[in-house]
Simulated assay, not measured.
Amino acid sequence: MRLFMIKLGGSAISDKSRPLSYREDWVRKLGTLLVKEFKTGNRFILVHGGGSFAHPMALAYGLNRYRDHDQLIGVSLTSAVLNILSMKITLTLTLVGLPIYPLRTGSIYIIKDGKPHLLIEPMHIIELIERGVVPMLYGDVVASDEDFSIISGDDIMLDLGSKLRPSASIFLTDVPGILDTNGDVIKQLTKASIVNERSTYHIDVTGGLMKKIQSAMELARYTRTYLCAIWDLESISRILHDEEPSKCTRFLSD
C-alpha cells in the first residue's frame, strides 16, 4: 500500500478575505484526481485547515490563548463552523467518488506539554484505510494543559507523518509553492537555505508561513514533502507517481 498525506490549506479551500467562503470547485477538481489514483491502489489521509471558517471566529474570541470561561462560547462556535466545513469537504469529495471518513480532531487529539498528543493508536487510522476509506482530520480546538488550545493542520501533518511515514506529504495552498519576490517558485528549500533565501529573495517567512515551513522541514525527515497549488493537478499527479513536479517547492531535511 502506498500512502500519501495531503493537507488542504485554508487558502486552498476558502477565500480568507470572505468569512465562511468555500472553494468547492478547487476541492472537486482535486477529488476527481484523487479518485483516479485511489482506483490504482494509492491510499490517502487528508487534513484540512480552518480557512475563512475558523480563523475569524478564533480571532474574535482570542482562542490563540485560552484565558477564561467566557471563551468557551468561542470554543463551541469554532468547533461548530469547523465541523460544517469538514462536512462540506466530505460531501464534495464523496460525491465525486472518494470515500471520505471524517474524524473530529478534538476527539482524538489533545495538546500535552505544548505538543500534539494522539489519544488513539496510529494503527487505528491504518485499519480504517485498509477498510477502504479515506480518513480526514482538520485543525481544531482541543483540550490542553491550558484548558483549550488550537491544533493546526500543519501540527497534525507533522505528528501523523512522523508516525506513519507516508510515501509523500503535500501541503496544498492557493499558490504554486514558496515564492521569491519575482513571483518565481523556489524549487527546493532546506533549513540552511532559509537564511540565504531571506537575504537574497526576501521571501516572507514570518507568522503562519514560517510555522508552515518549519513543520514541513521537520516532516521532510520522514517523507518526501512538498508545497503546491491545489489547482496544479499535474504537479500533484507527478508527486503521486514518484516523480518531481515541474512546479512546487520541495522541502529537504539537512
Rank of each mutant, 00 (worst) to 15 (best):
G161N: 01
L20Y: 11
L34N: 10
L98H: 01
A80E: 11
E218A: 06
M210P: 00
S144E: 04
G132S: 08
V142L: 00
D204E: 15
G62M: 01
D140I: 01
S14N: 09
N196Y: 15
L233P: 02
R23W: 11
H241T: 15
A54Y: 08
L20A: 07
S193H: 05
R28N: 00
F251E: 09
T249A: 01
T225K: 01
A143C: 13
K16L: 01
G41E: 09
G161M: 15
R238F: 11
V142A: 01
L93W: 13
D232C: 05
P135G: 05
A168S: 15
F148E: 04
K211S: 13
I213M: 07
V142R: 08
K163F: 00
S193E: 14
D140P: 05
A58F: 09
Y109A: 02
E146I: 03
F171Y: 14
K212A: 05
G10S: 10
D242E: 14
I125P: 02
I6Y: 09
D242M: 10
F171H: 08
Q188G: 01
I230S: 08
T225S: 04
T190L: 06
I45Q: 12
L189P: 02
P166W: 03
P99H: 03
K191S: 13
S215L: 01
K88S: 13
S17W: 04
T40I: 09
G97H: 07
Q214Y: 11
E130V: 03
E218M: 11
K36E: 13
R18H: 09
G106A: 12
Y22E: 04
Y138H: 15
N196D: 13
L95N: 15
C228N: 01
S52D: 00
G9M: 00
S144T: 13
L227I: 15
S52W: 12
Y101M: 06
D140Y: 02
D180A: 01
L85C: 03
I84Y: 13
E146S: 04
S144K: 09
E37C: 12
G31F: 11
T40E: 14
D15C: 12
K187A: 13
S162Q: 01
A60G: 08
T105M: 09
R165P: 05
I13C: 02
E121R: 14
R238D: 12
L98Q: 12
G9P: 03
F4R: 12
T40K: 15
M87T: 11
I13N: 03
L33R: 09
D145Y: 05
L233H: 12
